[in-house]
Amino acid sequence: MRARMLFTLAIISFVCLYRAHSWAEGEATSPPPPQQQEGAPPAAAPKEPAPPASVTIIGASEAHGVLGRDVRSAKDEDMGRIVDVIVDREGTVRAAVIDFGGFLGVGSRKIVVDWNALHFGHVANKSDSITLDLTKEQVMAAPEYKDGTPIVVLGAAGSLKPWQFDHQ
């Protein structure tokens, strides 16, 4: 009985080794390309791999996120914090939504300011604020931003260009 099991195991090992060898040889020699039949459309060329994605490296001290950052006036008055960024259809940043006024979220309102009215010179640390080229009185007089309505953007003198929007 033991001899019979050893013989069966030897046969199985031989078959496995033979198949592995045959498979490896088949990999080394690829079959000739298939013949194209007359009148058939030309065979599709093998697809080229997609080009690699471009990579840009920005130094840690060169760029920072702005959402949640405090905004201050040139006179160092508290102007609120940035809660959203508005882009146009081409993806160009046009404005920032600032949560202005109130205390601990009570009595606050959102206003929209022109992106060019913001200065980001001192934002190396999360505690640094962004400077706004508007006074507290100008911001207080700005209409409130409400989602789904035309956006009124408060800009520094002479820098705001009107937006075209659809009434859909």
Rank of each mutant, 00 (worst) to 15 (best):
E38L: 11
K47Q: 10
I11W: 03
R89S: 14
A53E: 09
L118Y: 07
S13L: 15
I12L: 14
L104D: 12
T131W: 02
I130F: 07
Q138K: 03
N125V: 09
A53Q: 07
V97L: 13
S129Y: 03
G26Q: 04
K47I: 06
Q168T: 10
G80V: 03
H122M: 13
R2I: 05
V123K: 07
S54Q: 11
L154A: 06
I86R: 01
P34Q: 01
P143A: 00
I130E: 01
Q37D: 03
L17D: 00
S22Y: 13
S108N: 15
R69S: 05
T131S: 09
Q37G: 12
D99A: 15
A60D: 02
R72L: 08
G101Q: 07
A63Q: 07
P143F: 00
M79Y: 00
P162Y: 01
K47A: 13
G65V: 06
F120M: 10
E62S: 10
R81H: 15
E38Y: 08
H119V: 11
V112F: 06
Q164N: 14
G121C: 12
D166L: 15
F165D: 15
T29W: 01
V152N: 01
K136T: 01
M79T: 03
E144S: 06
A28C: 07
A63E: 02
L160A: 15
A53V: 14
P33K: 04
I130G: 05
E25P: 02
G101L: 13
I58H: 01
P41W: 00
N116S: 15
A141G: 02
G158W: 04
I11C: 11
P31C: 12
D128P: 04
V106D: 13
R19Y: 13
G65R: 15
G101M: 12
D84S: 14
A43G: 07
K110W: 05
L67K: 04
R109H: 06
F14D: 08
P42I: 01
L160P: 09
D147W: 08
G148Y: 04
W163H: 08
